[in-house]
Design a protein around this nucleic acid. Structure first.
Lengths: 153, 153
DNA sequence: CCAGCTGAGTTGGTTTTGCCAACCTAGCTC
DNA sequence: GAGCTAGGTTGGCAAAACCAACTCAGCTGG
C-alpha cells in the first residue's frame, strides 16, 4: 500500500510520493490557489479517479491537507490545501520551471516569472551556503555517508 | 511522437521530458557516474525496453548524449552522458533530495550530503537574487505574463 | 573457423495503470 | 419531494510497464 519505496535514497522516496503522473501539475495548481476537487479536475482535465488517488497520496504523506469547510447557506465541502511541507516544494517546482524556460523555450516566452517581492529584481533557484551566499554548482561536492547503499534503488 | 506537451507552462514541458517513471532515477545514476546501458539496467532493475525508451527521450531533448566509444581490444559501444543542459538538472535532483531528507526521513539518516567543495560547510537549494544573495520563499513573487493561458494544462 | 560470450538492445505476452463515461450520495433549494 | 451540485466511486477499454526470451554484432578461446 505504501507508495514510498524502502530506499535509503531520499530522491527515490520523494518520487514515491510526488513522481506519479499528474502529481506535480496538481501541486502547480495548488500553488496557484486552487483548493477544490472540481477546480483541479476542470483546470487539468484529469480523470476524477486519478485525481482522487493523487490527492489521497498527497494527504497521506503530509503534502496537502483536507479541510472540511462550510460556506453559509451551503453544505459542508472538502478543500485541499498545501501544508508547510507542501509549500516547501515551491523550490522544486521553480527549479523545473527554470529548466524548462531555458531548455524547452516557448515562442511567446515564459508564462510565469519569479521576482523579489518589492522591486522586481529577478530570482532564480540555486545552491546556497549557510551564510546565504550562492555557490556555483561546480563548487558543490556530493559526499556519501555510511547510509549509502551497496546496490539498488 | 513528441512527449513535450504543447503548453505555455514550462513546468508541464519539463515534465513531458522528465516526468515519466524512472527518468529521474536514471538521471540520479547518471550524476553518480554511470554511462552504460547495462549499468543503468542492473543498478535500477529497470526493464530494458523501458530503459531504451527513456534514454532515447533524454537524448532527443538534449539532456543526455549518446557517444560511441571504443575500448582497445573490444568492439565499439555506446555510452550515455549528461549534456550541459542535463547537468543543470543537478539543482532539481538536489531539491527533491532535500525535501525527502526533511519530510520522508530515513532511520539511518541521509545517504548523500552536499557540501561546499573546500571546507565542509553545508549547502542547500534555495531562491537567489541576481546579486547572489538568498531570498526567503515568502519574498518571492510569482508574476503572470501575457503568455499566461486562459485555461488548461 | 566455429562456438561461445558480452553489451546493447528488440520482441511478444501478461499485468498494471490510466482514461472515459456513467453512476452514486448528501445536503441544499425550490 | 424533485432537482441541483460538489465530490467522489465504479466498470469497461486502451496504453504503458513488466518479464522473459530472443537477436545481433564483434571479439575470444579452442
Amino acid at each position: 500500500m505504501s507508495k514510498v519505496p524502502d530506499s535509503s535514497c531520499s530522491i527515490a522516496r520523494s518520487l514515491g510520493v510526488l513522481g506519479e503522473r499528474w502529481t506535480f501539475l496538481i501541486l502547480r495548481e495548488a500553488f496557484g490557489g486552487l483548493t477544490r476537487f472540481a477546480e483541479f479536475r476542470d483546470s487539468l482535465g484529469i480523470a476524477p479517479d486519478v485525481l482522487a488517488d493523487r490527492l489521497a497520496t498527497l494527504v497521506r504523506y503530509g503534502v496537502m491537507e483536507r479541510a472540511t469547510y462550510q460556506e453559509p447557506g451551503s453544505r459542508s465541502r472538502s478543500a485541499y490545501a498545501l501544508t508547510p511541507a507542501g509549500r516547501e516544494l515551491n523550490v522544486v517546482l521553480a527549479a523545473l520551471q527554470q529548466w524548462g524556460d531555458l531548455h524547452l523555450p516557448w515562442p511567446e516566452g515564459p508564462s510565469i516569472l519569479r521576482r523579489v517581492r518589492d522591486g522586481d529584481r529577478p530570482v532564480h533557484v540555486g545552491f546556497v551556503d549557510d551564510g546565504g551566499k550562492e555557490i556555483a554548482p561546480a563548487d558543490v561536492a556530493m559526499i556519501r555517508t555510511a547510509a549509502y547503499p551497496g546496490q539498488r534503488t
